[in-house]
Simulated scan of single mutants.
Amino acid sequence: MAVIRIEQSNPEYLAEHFQLLTVQSSHLNRRCDISVFNAHPDSKDLPIVILLHGVYGNHWVWSGLGGVHKAYIDEYAKGGLSQMILIMPSDGGFYGGSAYLPLANGENYEKWIVEDVIAAVIKCNPSASIASNVYIAGLSMGGYGALRLGAKYPTLFKGISAHSSITDIREMTLFVAEDLSLYNTHLTYESDIAHWLEVNKNHLPPIRFDCGTEDTLYSGNLKFNEQVKQLGIHAQLESLPGSHSWEYWHQHVSKTFQFFDGIERTLK
């Protein structure tokens, strides 16, 4: 088992509905953190929504900078939205960002997400279980992680949503100072989202992605959208006003909740 030990926060000392986990993982040979927001602690088999952060971030930025919990509560208060548990893991703390990859140096940031994070959350949350549907979303580097992991593990995730995504690993150089060689993997195609989309094109879950038209990553998203079309995959880029900012992500993360809600209702 990759999860060696879990430290779990006391709910008496945190903001309402928040939980913090520190997980010791054999995939990374270190401890990593997860923030959990669950406004429905008495429910069972809640859908698990994994939210991946961008470069230089950590498990707390989705809530502490993006107010994702407030965005969820506001959307839920409108009525009709499925109950969900929001899971916000650290990327593993590799330099400016791990890109959620299985690196050639032996550190497996991919397995940390697809195995350890899910296992730890289920173990520490009675509201989640192995019967919970799992969804994955992210912003910037986290959008890249969501698209790549969702495409590589199509039977694990029921839906994929990405905001302002890095769509080519080479775009990491727009944000981090480290040499791109640090992101080498054992297989040359490992980091290529399009490769996994093509390999699993007949088994992919529903996919959506958006990007601000003033974003430095917008041109890359346009190019990626053409790749998706050429593969014959149903996933359309939604171009929206805005830049690469928390204001944009706070405003549009509700699209992720709505998208996953639509999928969840078809699975009931």
Rank of each mutant, 00 (worst) to 15 (best):
N58G: 14
P102T: 06
K123F: 12
P89T: 09
A71C: 14
Y144P: 00
E115L: 11
G106E: 09
Y76L: 09
A137L: 07
G57W: 04
I136S: 05
D116R: 08
G93P: 00
F94V: 05
F94Y: 15
P89D: 06
L103T: 01
Y76S: 07
L101I: 12
A77C: 12
G96S: 15
Y135C: 08
S63E: 08
V121I: 11
S129W: 03
A146N: 02
S127E: 01
E75Y: 09
G93A: 11
S127L: 02
A104F: 08
L81R: 01
A128R: 02
V114Y: 13
L139G: 05
I130A: 12
E75A: 15
A137P: 00
K152I: 08
N105K: 10
L81A: 08
M88S: 07
V121T: 07
M84N: 01
D116S: 13
Y56W: 14
P154D: 04
Y56L: 13
Q83Y: 05
I136F: 08
P102F: 05
T155L: 07
G67Q: 13
G150S: 08
S82L: 01
Y76K: 13
L86D: 01
P89Q: 11
Y95N: 13
L101Q: 06
R148M: 14
L103C: 09
Y109D: 04
K123E: 13
L101F: 05
G92F: 05
P102L: 04
V117L: 11
L156V: 09
A71Y: 02
P102C: 09
K111P: 00
G106P: 01
V121E: 00
S132N: 05
A151H: 04
I122W: 09
L81S: 05
M141I: 12
I85C: 13
N58Q: 08
Y76A: 13
Y109T: 03
I118P: 00
M84Y: 07
S90C: 13
A146G: 04
V61W: 04
V117A: 11
G79Q: 05
A119P: 00
N133V: 04
G57I: 04
Q83I: 03
A120Q: 03
V61Q: 06
L81Q: 02
K70G: 11
T155Y: 12
L139R: 02
I136P: 00
V117D: 00
S63A: 15
A104Y: 10
S98E: 05
Y144I: 10
W112S: 04
Y100A: 10
L156W: 07
I73W: 10
G97I: 12
I85T: 11
L139K: 02
M88V: 10
G66C: 13
A119D: 08
G142K: 01
Y153W: 12
Y95F: 15
Y144N: 04
A131P: 00
S129C: 11
A77P: 00
F94C: 08
G138K: 06
P89Y: 06
E115A: 14
L149S: 05
S63F: 09
W62N: 03
I130C: 02
I118L: 10
V117I: 13
W60V: 10
L101G: 03
L147S: 04
S63M: 12
Y95H: 14
A119E: 12
A71P: 01
L103M: 11
L65E: 14
L156T: 03
I122Q: 07
N133P: 00
F94M: 14
H59E: 11
A128K: 03
D91I: 08
I73P: 00
